[in-house]
Write a protein that binds this DNA or RNA. Structure first.
Length: 606
DNA sequence: AAAAAAG
């Protein structure tokens, strides 16, 4: 019989601080530090208890007017289905919230209840003033200027109402820039944090564009769906999340949003598609399946958005993405509008991405807050064999300080799926309520784990990189890199699960000899973020061997997740870099609208 | 080498 954390805690004088005479713990059982007869390898950092809890994302977005006539308006499409759609100055409210007799579910229904259950989520979260200091960098030809308020853009009455329902007051930086750019019809490559309204930044222009256009009649092919917009993301959960948000934004606009991803029965997704789809949110695998079955055609695609675009174009995904974008029936760049978003944009990925773009604008938005703040980063030297007990020490200290329960969530990243299972089990056995999520679990299990984490039912989630990107989980107070990733960009995405929307977060990393390749980039990153870099890490960093040209991927992008590779003169060894698609950017003429680069601001976090 | 994504 093992002793659980709860039991050992109950049976001892909690808080006495130095009861150090207990017997050696039973194998596998966790014993809190103060009951142990040994000193810890490194000091337990102050628990995250004092950190404010994450708030909901309050974003917004609006901007100027359509560049107009981007696509040929054609034989005015038939409007609505008889039911009273509102028509406000050129806006087509399609179907007016009714879908062939089915009533549109109000996606805002549950919001109030949810918010009330977390009193800390009152709308005090974002420091909007801080937004004014955010460094922004744009490049490309004739970049449309940003807007400052929602009032400056007319996205249409229906969409405006949804913006209000979402309680978005003021556009976030990425929205201020990206929405006007998108509305003017330009392609866009954007480096920006998700926590600050990235989804809205690409959804608003798409929805308003679809409402505005009197586009050509969709072909009628039995059982084939013809979406007008395609949004791709690298994980199923992220696609679900985007779908949920897009549903809110398109409520009562008549714009139909459907999600398709693997691991779930395809039949229901097929049914949804048959009912009609304007915006399709999908993961690549399932979409290819649908395309091959000819249940979806991309020939009517006007808008293509890639979320976490750098991941979508890396080695694992690139062939699938190329197949979808280049080898099916999607209109080429210039005939569609392409929007790429990510927190990190390595140069080599930018180069790949330019194949999909036409005369695009590059946008980099620094993170909210100006220097150290938001995410406190710690690195601790922990031997592989000590990791578990060290983690439990951290969790125990957090619990003592009351961060757990319904308050703060802890997300623990590990390298492998097996490792995730093992650690989850270990934590549960020791009385720490944990769930786990990784790609070998069934979709049901994955969604259950995520739900259980979000609700605070299991305030600890052990995850592989499946959860590293894009997921917006409010109240994650602490991200632990139990195993560090090999790629510094992955680290950036992981820690970006906390400190969101202007709230503080804590990120702790366990470092040892197996992470040598990360020493230098990690030390650099922390330095840029004004974090205290342990001396031992600096020594490792100095010793680090240059691993090819890779280590410098972030060069020039210290304030952001990336920098327009077109501006890196030395990188332009051949001429085709400017030529991605018809009317590629003809070098020169880069406009800067950002201004106010404050020093010490680091990369965009998401 | 690992993770993700179709079944």
């Amino acid at each position: 019989m093992r002793t659980s954390w709860a039991e050992s805690a109950d049976n001892s004088a909690i808080g006495s601080g130095n009861g150090n005479s207990s017997a050696y713990p039973p194998r596998g059982a966790y014993v809190p530090p103060h009951l142990r007869n040994r000193s810890l390898p490194s000091e337990v950092p102050p628990a995250a208890a004092s950190l404010p809890v994450n708030d909901r994302v309050n974003h917004g977005g609006p901007a100027p007017h359509h560049g107009g006539g981007y696509f040929k308006a054609d034989q005015g499409r038939q409007q609505g289905h008889g039911s009273g759609y509102q028509t406000g100055g050129g806006w087509n409210v399609r179907g007016a919230g009714r879908d062939r007799g089915r009533r549109e579910v109000n996606p805002f229904e549950n919001d109030e209840a949810e918010e009330q259950s977390f009193s800390e989520q009152e709308n005090t979260g974002i420091n909007f003033e801080a937004y004014d200091d955010i460094p922004v960098e744009t490049s490309g030809e004739n970049v449309p200027p940003p807007v400052n308020t929602f009032a400056e853009i007319d996205l249409g009455e229906a969409l405006n109402q949804n913006i209000q329902r979402c309680k978005y007051v003021k556009p976030t930086p990425v929205q201020r820039y990206a929405i006007p750019i998108s509305l003017s019809g330009r392609d866009l490559m954007a480096c920006a944090q998700t926590g600050s309204g990235k989804t809205a930044a690409f959804c608003f222009p798409i929805i308003s564009g679809i409402m505005r256009e009197q586009y050509v009649q969709k072909p009628r092919v039995a059982r084939t769906a013809f979406p007008l917009a395609l949004i791709l993301s690298p994980t199923r959960e992220l696609s679900c999340q985007i779908h949920d948000e897009a549903k809110k934004f398109s409520y009562q606009t008549g714009v139909k949003v459907v999600v398709a991803y693997g691991g779930a029965p395809i039949t229901q997704q097929l049914r949804e598609l048959e009912r009609g789809v304007d915006i399709l949110v999908a993961t690549p695998g399932r979409l290819v399946d649908l395309l091959e079955r000819a249940r979806v055609s991309l020939q009517m695609i006007r808008y293509l958005a890639l979320d976490e675009a750098d991941r979508m174009l890396d080695m694992g995904f690139e062939p699938q993405i190329r197949k979808i974008v280049e080898q099916m029936d999607m209109p080429p760049p210039g005939m569609r509008q392409t929007l790429l978003f990510s927190a990190t944009f390595p140069k080599e990925i930018q180069r790949l991405a330019s194949d999909f773009l036409s005369s695009y604008v590059f946008l980099a938005v620094g993170r909210v807050g100006s220097s150290t703040d938001l995410i406190a980063q710690r690195v601790e030297y922990v031997l592989e064999s000590d990791k578990r007990s060290h983690l439990m020490d951290l969790l125990h200290a957090q619990r003592e300080n009351g961060i757990h329960g319904k308050q703060g969530l802890t997300l623990v990243f590990v390298e492998t799926k097996k490792g995730a299972d093992a650690l989850e089990h270990c934590l549960c056995v020791n009385g720490f309520p944990a769930a786990s999520i990784h790609g070998d679990r069934t979709q049901q299990e994955r969604e259950l784990a995520l739900r259980s984490f979000k609700t605070g039912n299991t305030p600890i989630l052990v995850a592989t990189d499946v959860a590293a990107r894009g997921l917006d989980i409010p109240r994650v107070a602490h991200v632990v890199n139990f195993d560090l990733p090999n790629d510094i960009d992955d680290y950036v995405h992981r820690i970006g699960r906390t400190g969101r929307a202007g709230k503080m977060g804590l990120a702790t990393a366990f470092f040892n000899e197996s992470n040598l390749s990360l020493a230098k980039p990690l030390a650099d990153l922390m330095q840029e973020a004004n974090q205290e870099v342990p001396a031992w890490l600096t020594r490792y960093a100095a010793r680090a061997i240059y691993s090819g040209g890779n280590r410098n991927r972030r060069s020039g992008g210290s304030r952001f997740g990336g920098r327009d590779f077109r501006r890196e003169g030395s990188f332009n060894k051949s001429t085709d870099y400017f030529g991605g698609g018809p009317g590629g950017v003809a070098g020169g003429g880069y406009g800067n609208y950002g201004g106010g680069y404050s020093q010490g601001v680091t990369s965009a976090w998401d």
